[in-house]
Design a protein around this nucleic acid. Structure first.
Lengths: 295, 295
DNA sequence: CTGAAAGCGCTAACAA
DNA sequence: TTGTTAGCGCTTTCAG
């Protein structure tokens, strides 16, 4: 009688079941940092995919530290989850490839480890192209990109920007920055000192755009009347009424769902590695507008 | 030889160990929603506390839905973690007290279930008092609070506000709002229509403050020259250069650490419930200033 | 102090 | 089909 089992609140012992069956019916998700909404959304996507497939999800976080990531992975490895979705920041450490040999793994990142694991990542270049297309269609020609050096995804965004600009016969101007407010703010100071300041600035991500935004505001430059500003990632701050930033949205939830699918394929025996690129989309808000009439 | 065990990458089977020992050496954390930085920080505090005590941490999320929370708890219950830290939004559901009977539980919330579990919560009234004290010391007397109805923590903040105002012989004015931008923005519209608009607005939380901020900006009111704005929670957006909001910071990490301590006490046999209130602190940024000279 | 044996609560393979 | 039994890989107990 199933009912009575429930009534007597009998709870099957997962430890015993897993031990006997050698399976856990659980997907482990290792996140670099829970504070990052990107990773939260990734986990949500995995949870959605897992639920659809009747699997459980367990999350561990590396708290932004490499040692933390390794410990988090170790926890999952010890738990012997059926597979692991990796939302890690620090790749290349051999720990990851080693792990992929032990357990079905799919990484969501700009990292490519040809065969050990599957990878899923955002088509950064396409996102940059969306931005350039949007701005040029508004009449902008002097567009500056504040990059984020070699931070994950940044080189691809930069490359996408320069390519898209060149294809349109425009000069791609790049200033050095990073994925934070401060460095973008400093870059913005330099940018506005140019003999011919740009009419649009494409920041490395939303946070950087917020830094640009803050500086332009503080020196009386109107947005988007004088200068258009674009971010990248569509984080919460982009949607804030006080900012309302035009940005590019990565299909992060989709990463999670797709990661689950790939993982299940692996669990079912697929051996060859798949590497997929998913396309982001443009979110137009209030920080971009037509190029101002020349003075 | 320990070394050889590691070299042969032998990995003790947690399932078997837990089955045999009846312990897991793991703390489960059930979070209402991973997207909320509050919960991320809570989990981080638990992780810190757990690491210090040589325990592992496993996280599940309810994805903001009650059914999700219940499923997340069920997962943890099935895993038979040694204890559970509850970072839940929806309390009062009998599921929680039932669970607390089955497994050591500590809840971080404004919820009080006298004996089934320990609870930890922010001293909301004290936080409201910090704000009133800060504003009155700047000379403000006409202070309006936009509340969040009966949302978790909101009644206590409102109560703290009215008490602190009354104690200082000031009239506590409260407008109805919620923990989001839109409703606070609407409240701000009404507030600025008052015959005598306030010189300071204390919003229910940072997001609400952002809504107020956006409205005031849009109608040309200067912050803090004309009106001071205060938020609550010190979320990321408060620190943004474009906003730089004065706010109140809850000791969320401390919640996590303390929750772990209480949990370990419970695991070691304590039966009586503890209910603790932790004090927040004021974070002064750029949205508060001296009361403007009367016109 | 070291080593063998008996479970922990299930699943899976086998026998009836 | 249903019922029985042998492990899964540990910990713990008990004997040596």
């Amino acid at each position: 009688m199933l009912a009575s089992a429930a009534e007597l609140d009998y709870r099957p012992n997962v430890w015993a079941r897993n031990l006997a069956s050698g399976q856990t019916n659980t997907i482990g998700v290792m996140l670099n940092d829970l504070h990052n909404p990107y990773f939260a959304e990734l986990a949500e996507g995995v949870a959605a995919g897992a639920t659809e497939n009747g699997m459980e999800v367990l999350i561990t976080s590396g708290w932004q530290r490499e040692a933390g990531e390794n410990a988090a992975i170790e926890t999952l490895l010890n738990l012997r989850t059926d597979g692991i979705v990796l939302g890690a920041a620090r790749f290349g450490s051999e720990a990851f490839s080693e792990m992929a040999q032990q357990i079905p793994t799919v990484a969501v990142s700009n990292f490519h480890e040809p065969d050990a694991m599957d990878t899923l990542c955002n088509d950064e270049a396409y996102g940059a192209e969306l931005i350039v297309e949007h701005l040029t269609s508004l009449g902008h020609t002097r567009i500056v990109h504040i990059d984020a050096g070699n931070a994950p995804g940044a080189p691809e965004r930069r490359k996408g920007f320069t390519t898209a600009m060149s294809q349109r016969g425009l000069a791609p101007i790049v200033f050095e920055g990073d994925f934070n407010e401060q460095s973008a703010r400093e870059a913005a100071v330099d940018i506005m000192k140019l003999k011919e300041p740009p009419t649009a600035i494409f920041a490395a991500n939303d946070l950087a755009a917020s830094g640009v935004f803050a500086h332009l505001r503080s020196v009386g430059v109107r947005i988007p009347d004088d200068v258009s500003v674009v971010g990248y990632d569509d984080t919460v701050l982009a949607g804030l009424g006080a900012i309302s930033l035009t940005t590019v949205r990565q299909p992060v939830q989709m990463f999670g769902r797709r990661a689950t699918e790939l993982l299940i394929e692996r669990i079912n025996g697929r051996q060859d590695a798949k590497h997929e690129l998913l396309r982001p989309s443009l979110v137009v808000r209030s920080t971009t507008g037509p190029v101002p009439a020349s003075p």
